[in-house]
Design a protein around this nucleic acid. Structure first.
Lengths: 138, 138
DNA sequence: TTGGGAGTCATACTAAAGTACCAAAACCAT
DNA sequence: ATGGTTTTGGTACTTTAGTATGACTCCCAA
């Protein structure tokens, strides 16, 4: 948000500078009005393209924003969600257990309740559903 | 491509019109030069933003194109690929077997060779890797 | 025409995954 | 402080998943 304010402030300043310059140029007869206007048009066109590119690229990087409300709606707890993420990363129950410093049976408990909450029969289906619901990164 | 040419032609025409208008306005004294330039800047800025948005949105819609070359490189056969897609859809071996009208042991054979080719230990890891390699839809 | 890849299937395993049920800490809000 | 949820863990069991091996058919290119 701060960035946006900064960018737009810069734009306004640039506009003022350009307009001062154009007036001076026109009056002094160094540069024709057409060229000044053309330059302004092109510059602002490029700025527009650039700004938008950055914004959309950022969107694309995070791919899809995670729907935290849906996670809550489904009653998925914090720990369960952590397990879900690890599942979608292709880890086994044992590997998840080691990573989260708990026993494998704990992970099994979490997985079972996740399957119920996501209405899935298998962990692979849970991955598919979770991605469709946009509660995990795609 | 045709669209791009059309858009840019339109832009040039718009530029010419604006510049004629600005010259007239300035000479006739109806509108101040500052405002004309500001309008031009804003208009072209908006055009820049808009054009880029359309382009990137299209990219985003097609999400990610499947890398068929990579599938070939990995030596994944047609049937194996079909199985891979069903796995990523969350189906069990039995369900895939029924869907493709073959026995479960056939699917197991395919899955095993898929795991080797994708260098995965589990089907969930195969899903993750296949998506990372962009050989299945995300 | 023949060797090799692709696809099919079976048997017999082992290893994970998942279910059911229970239970005890730990945490958190009223 | 107390009740409800979360997190943790265990046992015992069933179901899938995955491995290894061998075998048969089909098709296609050398």
């Amino acid at each position: 948000m701060k960035k946006t304010v900064f960018v737009f402030s810069s734009l306004i300043v640039a506009l003022l500078v350009l307009f001062k310059f154009s007036k001076y140029s026109y009056v002094s007869g160094d540069v024709s009005l057409e060229i000044v206007i053309a330059v302004i048009a092109i510059v602002f066109f490029i700025i527009g393209v650039y700004i938008n590119k950055r914004t959309l690229q950022k969107e694309k990087l995070s791919s899809i924003s995670i729907d935290y409300k849906k996670i809550e709606q489904l009653g998925i707890s914090k720990r369960e969600y952590e397990v879900l993420v690890q599942i979608s990363d292709g880890l086994s129950n044992k590997e998840i257990a080691d990573k989260l410093f708990v026993s494998e049976s704990t992970i099994k408990t979490h997985v079972s309740s996740l399957l119920v909450k996501l209405d899935a029969k298998r962990r692979t289906q849970a991955i598919q559903k979770a991605k469709a619901l946009q509660i995990i990164a795609i």
